[in-house]
């Protein structure tokens, strides 16, 4: 008996792998064919949008060359054009938005996953989802007609006291001068950023909430058993667990903030020079540039607009892919993917 045991397994290299072949019936074959066809169609549409935009944009890019990145003016039919001013404006608005939105989103996500009583939790989840569904034109109107006039005092206060920081400076204003016209502070990067923040906060918040609520209960209870307070538990278990989703959610919101159009158009007054002062009247963004100029454009100017759009697309694409890879690599991301 023992002889058999010794001789039985003949280990002579790897065995040839048995190929499993499914013999599909016709409904399955049709289904797979249709599904593949659908996938291909989706791919085609997406690829068409991307390649077409690139193709049309190249015409303008070739003419402008490197000056496309450095020029501040937008005058494609005569003279130079470039995205220096609009890109800076876009990025500044997005940064203001994401700073405010991050604070809001993290706070609300923690409230929903850790502190809210169950009934309130369901309500808050619904409200956050609703907030993501409210049309951007509604936010834009609210920002332009309501929020703008409430924020002026705050803008003025910050720029009066912290104007020595270049970012907060407002040019042409005497400090504490009561005669300063309020219109100097309207239509600024700051106000546009605030409104965009309200639009992207729910998006970032729902990503974070998902991850926070998946933090392993065993580790939570372990932290409590070691004597942690609730905040101690959050800091040592929930936040490290959800770090990937935290960063991912912020980046996702950033991607959205970069591309926001109508709310920004309704608030800012466009200028084509680099505007580094976030409280000062007048700024611009790529999407508002396109929205305001597509109508009266010649074919070449349209191509230039597409080049600007393409630059914006490249930026949001970069941000989104970074977000996706961070979320996928984190612990919470791996759990939710499975």
């Amino acid at each position: 008996m023992s002889d058999v045991l010794v001789e039985a397994p003949e280990r002579q290299g790897p065995q040839p792998r048995v190929r499993l072949k499914a013999n599909l019936e016709w409904p399955d074959r049709v289904f797979r064919g249709v599904a593949r066809g659908g996938g291909l169609l989706v791919l085609l549409i997406m690829a068409l949008v991307g390649t077409f935009l690139t193709y049309r944009a190249l015409q303008a890019l070739r003419q402008a060359g490197f000056s496309f990145v450095t020029t501040q003016d937008w005058n494609p039919d005569g003279g130079g054009f470039g995205i220096a001013a609009v890109m800076v404006g876009t990025v500044l608005i997005a940064i203001v938005a994401i700073v405010v939105a991050t604070a809001l989103a993290v706070g609300v996500a923690l409230y929903i996953s850790e502190m809210a009583p169950p009934g309130v939790r369901r309500l808050m989840v619904a409200l956050v989802d609703l907030m993501a569904a409210v049309p951007s034109v509604v936010y834009g109107l609210w920002g332009a007609y309501f929020l703008q006039w409430r924020v002026l005092g705050l803008s003025r206060w910050i720029s009066d006291w912290f104007g020595w920081i270049p970012l907060f400076k407002v040019s042409g204003v005497q400090r504490h001068d009561p005669l300063t016209p309020e219109t100097l502070y309207t239509s600024s990067t700051f106000i546009a950023g605030l409104v965009v923040a309200l639009m992207v906060a729910p998006i970032a918040c729902s990503v974070m909430r998902e991850a926070f609520s998946q933090a392993p209960p065993g580790e939570r209870e372990g932290a409590y058993a070691l004597g942690a307070t609730r905040w101690g538990m959050i800091r040592s278990v929930v936040l490290p667990f959800g770090r990937g989703a935290l960063i991912g959610g912020i980046m996702l919101g950033l991607g959205r903030a970069l591309g926001e159009t109508i709310a920004v158009v309704l608030i800012i007054s466009p200028v084509f020079k680099i505007q580094p002062h976030i409280f000062e009247n007048g700024t611009s963004s790529v999407s508002s540039l396109i929205a305001l100029h597509y109508g009266e454009s010649s074919p070449f100017a349209l191509s230039a607009l597409m080049a600007a759009g393409l630059a914006l697309f490249a930026l949001t694409l970069l941000v989104n892919f970074a977000a996706a890879s961070i979320v996928a690599r984190s612990r919470s991301g791996a759990v939710s993917e499975a």
């Binding site: 591309g259 159009t261 607009l305 759009g309």
Partner: peptide, 28 residues
């Protein structure tokens, strides 16, 4: 591998600013 590629492309397209979708239809 093909669906994985399509998923990557779809995820990329969710980043497309909605304005550009309009611009694409306008131009084509």
């Amino acid at each position: 591998r093909f669906p994985r590629f399509v998923r990557t492309v779809v995820e990329a397209m969710t980043a497309l600013p909605d304005l550009l979708a309009g611009l694409f239809i306008f131009a084509t």
